[in-house]
Structure formats: C-alpha cells, structure tokens
C-alpha cells in the first residue's frame, strides 16, 4: 500500500467513525427518551397544575443535568478551560444561538407536542428535521449531498412516520392541532440547530460545544422560559424533583442525553450536518426497541416496516464513505 492509499484509508476510517457516532447519538437519544418518560410518570411530575408544566420543567432539568455530566467529562479530559475561551469567540456565541434553537425551541416544542398531540405524532413530525437541516446545510454550509443521500434521508423520514402513525384520538388530545404545530416548530428548531452548530463548529471542539450548548439551553429555560410561563410554580417543581427518586431517573436520562449530544456534535464534525442528522433520527427506532425492553411497548407490523425503512435510509446515507472525505464542495 502506498502513501496516498494509506492516507485515504485513514481519512475514510475517520469518516466511518463519524457515521458510528451518528448512530450512537440516535440510540442513546432513544434510550434517554424512554428513561425520561419513566421520570414523567413519577412525583412531582404527575402533580402539575398545568398540562405544560411538567414537560417544560423536565426538559430544563434534563438539559441542566446533561450540562453537568458533560462538564465532568470535559474536566476529566482536560478541556474545561476551553469553555471560557470559546464563549468569548464568535463561533462560541453561535453555539449558544444554536442552543436556543435546539433547547428552548426544539426540546420544548417536542415535549409539548408529545403532551398535546401524543408521542406518535410528535415523533413522526420532529423526525422531518434532518430534511429541513439538509436543505439549510446545502445553502448555508455548502455541504455536498448526493442524490443517494437525499433518498436515504427521505426514506428514513418516511420510516419514522410509518413507525409513529396511529389514528388521532380526539378525546385524549383536545389540543391536538396545537401539539402538531409545536412539533413542527421543534423540527425547525432542531434543523436550524444542526446547521448553526455545523457552521460554528468548524472551529469549536465538539465536546466543548456540547458543554456550552447544554449550559446555554438550561440558562434560557431557567431565567426566561420557566418564570415567564409558570412563575414560582416552575421553580417549586424543580425543587420538589430534587427531593424525590425522579431526580435519579432524570440524572440517568441526562447522562444518556448528554452522551447523545456529544456523539451528535462529533458526528456533525466528522461526517457533516446533513448525514449526522439523518443518522440521529434512528432514535425513533431505538426508542421503540428500548420501550419494548424497558416499559413493555407493543411491537406491531407497522413498527417493523417503518423500522426497516429507517434502517435502509440510514444505510443509504452512509453507504459510500469515500465521498465523505471532503465534506464540502470546493
């Protein structure tokens, strides 16, 4: 093997690792969601005076605690000093902006969508976010996306819709259409997050970016969203959660969620925003699998068909790592 071949092999290896991080981000996000749903079934989240309180407070705590886990991780790998240095730069500020789209807009929209329209619809709609992100990344990041990758992204999205589709139950979800609208908002938020972070993270270390992202997201929840939407009651629920077992469950979900974000941002850095997002939505499939293992969610034929579509889509996205060597068109 000559030098050029060895270099190519090494670069393909790097790109392939990026694809693996993308899949790992989906799996850990799926598991984190299932663990969060266990927490939402416990006190104090079952005692909310408003339908919206528990999902928002839960999302805020998830991001805050995930930020803490990521900080611990960066403390160990010697990157904690990078937080302050990075946040003073423009790309660092872009990471904070991305956090606002992903956390308070994306995550809140998703959680509210689940509450108001049911998990199936919220999941199916938010899974469109890679398509939104892919369109944006072609224009903003000048990423190269082949026809095959596009087919893969669309197939994955179709699969998520098949997995999640059940007829709406008007009796259970009186605010169904508001929930759908919020889920759409979440998809736009997440798509934008992926693209902005892809832009800022040329220069920012992905592990540091996630740390800043989680901290920024939590801060916006804590000083703006919670007081504006709920006032003191929101803080009371956080305080109450700290004295119950649900805290431990959220700590586990946050560990998985933080890990998922590290994998996702690393994948964006190594394999490009569009592909990373397409692999990230395999979370819909993983959440079904983990839901079946942990809380006994039923496996139906549509789940299997949709699951196959998601998997085939993901394979198409990552099928030819050779074209991943140069993420951008010249």
């Amino acid at each position: 093997m000559n030098t050029t071949e060895r270099l190519e092999k090494q670069e393909i290896g790097h790109a392939k690792k990026g694809l693996l991080y993308g899949v790992a981000s989906g799996a850990s996000w799926g598991l984190s969601g299932v663990v969060m749903s266990i927490a939402f079934g416990m006190a104090p989240f079952t005692e909310g005076v408003s339908l919206l309180l528990a999902p928002i407070v839960g999302a805020a705590m998830h991001d805050g605690l995930a930020g803490l886990w990521v900080f611990l991780y960066n403390l160990i790998n010697g990157k904690w000093r990078e937080y302050g240095r990075t946040i003073r730069t423009k790309p660092g500020m872009l990471v904070c902006l991305a956090a606002c789209f992903g956390g308070p807009i994306g995550m809140s929209g998703y959680m509210l969508g689940i509450t108001l329209a049911g998990p199936s619809y919220a999941l199916a709609i938010t899974a469109i976010y890679p398509a939104i992100g892919a369109i944006l990344s072609v224009f903003v990041l000048k990423e190269k996306i082949s026809v095959r990758t596009w087919i893969g992204i669309l197939l994955s999205i179709a699969g998520v819709m098949v997995v999640s589709w059940v007829p709406p139950d008007a009796g259970m979800y009186p605010y169904f259409y508001a929930g759908i609208a919020l889920a759409c908002l979440a998809a736009i938020g997440w798509g934008t997050e992926g693209v902005i972070s892809g832009f800022g993270m040329d220069m920012v270390d992905p592990e540091v970016a996630v740390g800043i992202r989680e901290a920024a997201s939590f801060s916006v929840y804590f000083v703006a969203i919670i007081p504006i939407m709920f006032g003191v009651v929101g803080y009371q629920m956080i305080a109450a959660a700290f004295t119950t077992t649900s805290l431990w469950i959220i700590l586990i979900a946050a560990l998985l969620g933080g890990g998922s974000y590290i994998c996702w941002y690393k994948a964006i850095n190594m394999t490009g925003a569009a592909r990373a997002m397409a692999l990230n939505i395999t979370y819909a499939l993983w959440s079904v699998l983990f839901g079946w293992l942990l809380i006994g969610t039923e496996i139906t034929p549509t789940l299997i068909i949709g699951g196959l579509a998601i998997t085939c889509g993901a394979i198409l996205v990552g099928a030819n790592p050779k074209e991943l060597i140069n993420l951008r068109s010249k």
């Binding site: 670069e11 790097h14 991943l324």
Partner: peptide
C-alpha cells in the same frame, strides 16, 4: 483536531 479540520476544509 487536525484530521477533523481537514475533513471540514479548514
């Protein structure tokens, strides 16, 4: 860092 920065075109 170097291999990522190269893939990203920096």
């Amino acid at each position: 860092h170097l291999i990522s920065m190269r893939a990203l075109g920096l």
